[in-house]
Design a protein around this nucleic acid. Structure first.
Lengths: 189, 189
DNA sequence: GTCTATATACCGATAGAC
DNA sequence: GTCTATCGGTATATAGAC
């Protein structure tokens, strides 16, 4: 529809509800209340509920991509540091804000065909970034295994943290990232 | 309500729909049609929609527990074989039948408080079984890392396969299990 | 840009005949 | 155990005043 600052703020609030309740159980009335408006007013900003989901997922994936890029640029060049930077960035987008990136990962199937086609390249870009860092680690002998499967297993281990991580607990997202990389590395290099 | 063979068959059919559509998007009318009856008749077998979900999840978790136990009893005693047996059993319940175990993992949050309390011990038993096998592998020096985190990461990597695995593809659940264990092991022991 | 009011459809669940 | 018929509630979305 557009991308006004207002719409962006509404998208941010929608993301929070989608994470808490899931997309299907979140009603437009709940969304409107969270936004401080009536449900009828919501459709001035979004064509329908589907478009809200697409906006949240686009925002979540773009943000994750930007944060991952920034993390890679500001860390050491060795493949262990880069792998940890990616894991840490990924976990922070998932666990610290509990924001749109969670929705992008867990509600992707709810997108209609048009939205999936439109957002597919963004998702692919993020996964491609992961695969380059995995490739570097494989080439350096830091980790080992099949390139495709290692990528999927690593992302699965990270994505599933949403289900069990306790923000009130003692472990930080950064610590989780370090532990995951350590788990994959040979004990003495 | 009861556990007649009829109800068990209906539960099996419900599981398939819950995996395909998700619990929230599956209507009682869809369930009834899949079962070959009218929607009103469904409530002769289940008190409400929640009870169908609870039945599916109980079935899925019991089945996974039974298959895991059987796999452990019929494999070699070394910790690598046992870890692979667990991974293979887990993946087969998730990927081969696409059945109730997927629902147990992905729709757990939709259970009401009573059902969660009732089924929690089953889920705990299954996770405890995983942790004993992980503990053995840690003690044997096969893998390394924090016991709690390794368990969560491994189960996350396995559970996420549901999202990307292609049953028509060339990789079997068994191969995935072998590759996951290989990824975690030190290259030269 | 937000409101009130409402259209239209479908949801889960029940009642009672057979 | 399954059927028909339907209740009461709530869902997404629209129309038009302000």
């Amino acid at each position: 529809m557009n991308d006004s600052p207002r719409r962006k703020e509404l998208t941010r609030q929608a993301a929070q509800l989608f994470v808490q309740e899931g997309f299907d159980r979140t009603t437009v009335r709940m969304l409107a209340e969270e936004m401080g408006i009536k449900s009828g007013s919501l459709f001035h900003h979004f064509r329908d509920k589907q478009e809200i989901l697409a906006a949240v997922i686009e925002e979540g994936t773009r943000n994750a991509l930007a944060i991952a890029h920034a993390a890679l640029e500001s860390c050491d060049r060795d493949s262990e540091a880069r792998l940890q930077a990616m894991a840490r960035a990924h976990l922070e987008t998932l666990l610290t804000d509990r924001n749109a990136h969670v929705v992008a990962l867990y509600e992707w199937r709810r997108l209609d065909d048009d939205a999936r086609a439109h957002l597919g390249h963004l998702r692919d870009a993020y996964e491609a970034l992961w695969e380059t860092v995995i490739d570097e680690a494989l080439a350096a002998g830091l980790i080992h295994g099949d390139r495709f499967l290692v990528s999927r297993f690593v992302m699965g281990a990270l994505n599933w943290t949403v289900r069990w991580y306790d923000p009130e607990g003692e472990r930080s997202p950064e610590e989780l990232g370090r532990e995951l990389v350590a788990m994959l590395m040979a004990p003495r290099g």
